[in-house]
Nucleic acid binder design. Structure first.
Length: 419
RNA sequence: GCGGGGGUCGCCUAGCCUGGUAGGGCGUGGGAUUGCUAAUUCCAUGUUCGCAAGAACACGAGGGUUCGAAUCCCUCUCCCCGCGCCA
């Protein structure tokens, strides 16, 4: 959500933002509803004022023991009128809020304009592995080594599910262990969040379209499966006034992620690259506004360092205005090399959401109790999505005789050097 | 799941029985006063609308009764205590 006052004062910027994001949004309707909403507030406030004044008169009359019948009758009619107007106001408010919740976030000025072809590679690390044999993809590798049950998963759950098996289970746990150790050493506090959260929390974290395309709902309950621990982490401090001295909070969250993947039909159909359920360690930071861009750079640096330790070649991409999520003001993606696909593929995403989520969830801070509160900034970044990372490990570290070498950093967690 | 007790403006708390402008303390900021440290005292300290003056709203959430609800009634929610069930 954006500050309505700011929208009114920066109409040109907002129109440009919508254009650059290539998003259909009825800004004129929003302005109209905002105007109507404010008018309604003024009208109903005046009636309430009248009511309050009469209430005092009634009280005084009763105390004095005189007759208050005529004032009470007058107040009855004012009350009735107010009830009627409040109904109208409530409807206006609902309409306004519904629309206001769908306007995308501002864009940082460093974001390139255009669609995904305008994405900008800003860094590249590592040498692409060369093989003197025919390279296999992770599906063939895991089949040969008996590391996945894909057909049986399709039988028991459907497409885009999997059973990890044997050493792949251990590799997954090793990545998680290593990731948590790594973030702990870098001053992060670990969290394991709820995997289901209520509608209000989810609505603060995501934009409406995501409910349809991404989020699973629990039947007959006000609960939704998180699509990422970000959803549970951002709402954790909802309706709170944080102590400014505690910022930035650096949280490391580990959780499974559940995604519908609606609209991804045909893409990455096989294997464990694009699935309905995967594990992810997330960095989540609440920061002061003046510090958030600095934090954003820190977070992407941490993620890059992690993949360097895993010896996986990657490139870091600054997403263009048309390719970003609507809640983010600026996003870096990390794409790692996947030898089986002969391509860089997305494994991590690092976003600064400014005060967009904080406004929705009322996450504020102040340094001293008599100061005005400010909205905190929220930032999220993948540290590691383990299933995708295992695809990269299997494909990049495969050997001629069909085995997979374990990256140095993971060997002590795996207790072996090769699968 | 059952029974009991709770949720009040950052924190603590009064008010609820008996409906009539939500009070006090702490913390924080500012002013005044007194040789100093300190003490004392006054003002400010939530949200929304408004350029402002000001006004409205706010007692866990949502309904209801009433001219009027923190207060009475209903539903939900979270916390605490006891019992039950349970990995």
């Amino acid at each position: 959500m954006l500050d309505m006052k700011m929208i009114r004062e920066n109409l040109e910027n907002i129109r440009n933002m919508l254009k650059y994001r290539d998003v259909q949004f009825d800004l004129d309707l929003l302005l109209e509803l905002d105007k109507k909403r404010r008018e309604m507030i003024i009208t109903t406030d005046e009636l309430r004022k009248k009511k309050n004044e009469m209430s005092i008169k009634i009280s005084e009359a009763k105390k004095a023991g005189s007759d208050a019948t005529s004032i009470i009758q007058e107040m009855q009619s004012v009350s009735a009128e107010l009830t009627k107007l409040e109904g109208v106001q409530q409807n206006t408010e609902l309409e306004y809020t519904k629309l206001a919740l769908t306007i995308p976030n501002l864009l940082d000025k460093s974001v390139p304009q255009g669609d995904s072809t305008a994405n900008k590679e800003i860094r590249k690390w590592g040498d692409i592995p060369k093989f003197d044999f025919e390279v296999k993809d992770h599906i063939d590798i895991s089949e040969n080594l008996n590391l996945l049950e894909l057909e049986r998963a399709a039988k028991t759950a459907g497409a885009r599910f999997y059973y990890l098996k044997g050493d792949l289970v251990k590799l997954n746990q090793s990545l998680i262990q290593f990731g948590l150790d790594f973030l702990s050493e870098n001053g992060y506090t670990m969290f394991q969040p709820p995997y289901m959260i209520n509608r209000n929390s989810m609505q603060g974290a995501v934009i409406l379209d995501d409910f349809e395309d991404v989020i699973y709902k629990i039947e007959d309950q006000d609960l939704y499966l998180i699509g990422t621990s970000e959803h549970a982490m951002v709402s954790m401090h909802g309706n709170e006034i944080l102590d400014g001295n505690s910022l930035p909070t650096k949280y490391a969250a580990i959780s499974p992620c559940f995604r519908k993947e609606a609209g991804a039909h045909g893409k990455d159909q096989k294997g464990i690259f694009r699935v309905h359920q995967f594990e992810k360690i997330e960095q989540f930071v609440f920061s002061k506004p003046e510090d958030s861009w600095n934090q954003h750079e820190n977070m992407i640096a941490i993620t890059e360092e992690f993949f360097q330790k895993l010896e996986i070649p990657y490139r870091t991409v600054l997403l263009s205005s048309g390719d970003m999520g609507k809640i983010s003001a600026k996003t870096y993606d990390v794409e790692v090399w996947m030898a089986g696909q002969n391509a860089y593929r997305e494994v991590a995403s690092c976003s600064n959401c400014l005060d967009y989520q904080s406004r929705r969830l009322k996450i504020r801070f102040r340094d001293k109790t008599n100061e005005d509160t400010q909205y905190a900034h929220t930032l999220n970044s993948t540290l590691v999505a383990t299933e995708r990372t295992m695809v990269a490990i299997m494909e990049n570290f495969q050997t001629k005789d069909g085995h997979v070498n374990i990256p140095n950093a993971l060997q002590k967690y795996m207790g072996k050097k090769t699968i």
